[in-house]
Design a protein around this nucleic acid. Structure first.
Lengths: 223, 223
DNA sequence: GTCTATATTCTGATAGAC
DNA sequence: GTCTATCAGAATATAGAC
């Protein structure tokens, strides 16, 4: 039974305080795992609580016993997913010792590795973020705000120092994230259009870890 | 009451055979318009037939009278949306007189204009395409197959002639479409991260009509 | 073709036994 | 904590009058 690392760590931490051996996954965790799997794959509206219960190997009533409602369970998963999604990028952005170009390489590599493991995540986030305007938007803002300031400042500094030409931060972010994330978001349609199978897709994504930074560098030299 | 151009043309064609004056939108068209609006914005599962009926200004029973079921109505909208989405690109790709670089510019411009008018379309397609594996996949293949051959051939020729370096068609397509479409797909999150309002977003998208072709050209020179 | 009223199915949530 | 059984409401679809 494979678990997200974060869960395992929590379990181990709990276990440490009582026993030495890591115990079986708790019912609550099993439900969360099942919910994350289905919500992430099919979205809120298309996922039925019955399916989550079945996937978790427990009864429907138990789901409500632990989480009170479908919406509350979803909110938890949504927030976890979003944090997980930007967590990969956060550490890299804050690295004071890295230049912009080094950061791009680290971010692209980390993200492609991450998305290879969680290919459904970005589409889920883009999707569920569109319907809920101000619901969880605030929490997201809190997570993102300091990162924005940091990145803007570094871009401005690099531009002032003449290291890179002035580029609008929006274009910069859209391009880095777009080149990295889009192939995963559009995977089904891209594979169809280009006749690329699953194995070849994986290989191409590995290639992009090297290519995206080179491409971005070349783009920064434009105009 | 603003109608999609295609509808207007159909109506005008019909009208030509009988009367001179273009008549009011038919009930069937009104339902389809309402369905397209809601399905595209919220997806299949989150859209209720009641809402479609209300949006169309008719009764719920009438929806089933015309389309028999929610699923059948959705399938029609889905196919129309998809055709509309790739239709913009199709003409440009087949233009025998244009070089690869000219095509990129035409495609980027046409797509950004199109997406400005229909910002919800790409996310809708990416989304609903993920759940339905082989359902409408075949019809999509039929639409896309000849375009794939044409594009691959031109890329190969340009590469052989030494005009551009060899690049995997997958990377090429992913990059062009990614740089063009991704900002619209990720609009809410990108706006949040970069503190960009709606007006500024529109301006930036207009900028990209010029920038994307330049960027792609610069990327093609890499390595 | 269009409506009102109703049937039918689905789904989230709860009551209550164990 | 976990289960079975069931309720209440929602959502799709149909019957039948006009």
């Amino acid at each position: 039974m494979s678990l997200p690392l974060s869960y395992k760590l929590i379990l181990m931490a709990k276990a440490k305080t009582k026993k030495i051996v890591v115990e079986e996954t708790s019912t609550e965790e099993k439900i969360k795992e099942a919910a994350k799997k289905l919500f992430t794959r099919k979205g809120f509206a298309a996922t039925r609580t019955r399916d989550i219960a079945e996937e978790a190997g427990i009864n429907l009533a138990l789901l409500n016993y632990y989480f009170r409602s479908k919406q509350k369970l979803f909110d938890i998963i949504m927030l976890e997913n979003f944090k997980q999604f930007i967590q990969g990028i956060t550490v890299k952005v804050y690295d004071e010792t890295a230049t912009i170009e080094e950061k791009i390489e680290k971010i692209a590599t980390a993200y492609i590795d991450f998305l290879t493991l969680h290919p459904d995540l970005p589409l889920f986030i883009l999707n569920e973020l569109r319907g809920n305007p101000s619901d969880i938007a605030e929490k997201i803002n809190e997570e993102v705000a300091p990162m924005r300031l940091h990145l803007m400042k570094q871009l401005q500094n690099a531009s002032n120092a003449g290291k890179i030409p002035a580029i609008d931060p929006f274009h910069f972010v859209a391009n880095v994230i777009g080149l990295t994330v889009f192939p995963f978001v559009a995977k089904p349609i891209l594979q169809r259009v280009t006749s690329v199978g699953d194995d070849r897709f994986q290989t191409l994504m590995q290639e992009r870890k090297k290519l995206v930074p080179l491409w971005i560098k070349a783009m920064l030299a434009v105009k």
